[in-house]
């Protein structure tokens, strides 16, 4: 009996001591404008991946941003006013991957392309495609008069499979060169960016690095992981390629351009890309507003930031007054036929 009692006492003591260990709870916020402001500022402070880089590149001081915008918060402001202040605060990050979603509006920062020439006239581009172009999933393609293959890919959200790529490349196999026009493609899936680029290399090549935050500190990051482009086992293109870019090439398109820039026989022509090299994560505020922010930074093969875009190999702009010719396409045709 004594042994039994000892066992009982030990069990009771153990269970009681375990009950006093801390509970895992979320941060305690209310629905007030102050608390929503604090929740948003803290979410960016702890999770956003470019605070250190942007402090260096554009002089961002996130603590100073808190002081500056906290002064604009008052307990009686309505949701419209609160969203306006929060949008202004997020704009300090100068990041197209940062958004605040409410039922009324989507807060955004689009100056990365709005402040620059578009370098794309879709009506002119449609002249090159004509009316008898082919469509393979998200890829529109045809053979131009000078025997150059022309492919337009408008969004990386449109699925492209290996079967689509095989058909397109086989159809264009007799062309002297290939133009891939990703102007105004604002991104989508990284999987398609990798799948398409894998048709333009015969060897496994280093294309960049990716890392992620390992803690709340602004400089807590994992060791960057090398990203390699592995050649496709299906049809691969062996001739010259021109990739056309403008300031609206963003996110996954930016990554596609980064990958293509590492491939042999590939020339990037047009304007600098828009950037957006942070893979965005989602979260939300106590009042239910959703937020999006860059979480995992991606770099080029030299470990340089590409958040603000990638320079083309040949910088070129369209002539806005020319409604017949697209100077960027014409530059690519000249290069490929040379």
């Amino acid at each position: 009996m004594a042994f039994t009692q000892r066992i009982h006492h030990t069990l009771c003591l153990l269970l009681t001591s375990l009950l006093f260990t801390a509970c895992v709870e979320g941060d305690d916020y209310n629905l007030t404008p102050e608390d929503n402001f604090e929740a948003l500022w803290t979410a960016i402070d702890e999770h956003y991946c470019f605070l250190d880089y942007k402090a260096e590149a554009i002089g961002l001081d996130w603590n100073n941003v808190h002081t500056q915008y906290k002064a604009r918060i008052n307990p009686h402001m309505n949701n419209t006013q609160l969203q306006e202040v929060l949008t202004d605060m997020l704009s300090e990050l100068r990041d197209g991957h940062v958004n605040l979603y409410t039922s009324r509006d989507v807060s955004r920062y689009w100056h990365w392309h709005e402040d620059y020439p578009k370098n794309l006239n879709k009506a002119v581009r449609d002249n090159y495609l004509g009316t008898d172009y082919k469509i393979s999933s998200g890829l529109k393609y045809r053979i131009l008069d000078d025997n150059i293959g022309y492919v337009v890919y408008e969004s990386f959200q449109h699925a492209v499979g290996d079967g689509n790529l095989d058909e397109v490349l086989y159809y264009l196999r007799t062309c002297n060169g290939l133009i891939i026009d990703v102007r105004s493609n604002t991104g989508g899936s990284l999987e398609y960016a990798e799948r398409i680029a894998s048709r333009f290399t015969n060897e496994k090549i280093l294309v960049g690095y990716i890392s992620h935050k390992t803690g709340k500190g602004h400089s807590e990051f994992s060791t960057p992981k090398a990203e390699y482009l592995t050649p496709s086992k299906n049809i691969r293109w062996q001739k010259k390629v021109a990739v056309l870019t403008n300031r609206e090439c963003y996110s996954a398109t930016n990554t596609f351009v980064r990958n293509m820039k590492c491939c042999p026989n590939v020339t990037i022509i047009g304007d600098q890309t828009g950037g957006g090299s942070g893979m965005p994560f989602s979260s939300e505020l106590p009042n239910g507003w959703a937020i999006r922010f860059s979480a995992c930074p991606m770099y080029d093969k030299d470990m340089k930031q590409i958040e603000f875009g990638i320079q083309p190999d040949i910088t070129c702009s369209i002539d806005e007054s020319d409604t017949i010719h697209d100077k960027i396409i014409e530059t690519a045709r000249t290069l490929l036929n040379y």
């Binding site: 990284l190 990716i210 992620h212 935050k213 390992t214 992981k225 995992c296």
Partner: peptide
């Protein structure tokens, strides 16, 4: 996953980190 690690890194790139 690690604090800010994406599943893309884990499953597509095979980057395992704690």
């Amino acid at each position: 996953p690690n604090y800010g690690q994406s599943y893309y890194e884990i499953f597509s790139l095979g980057d395992y980190d704690h």
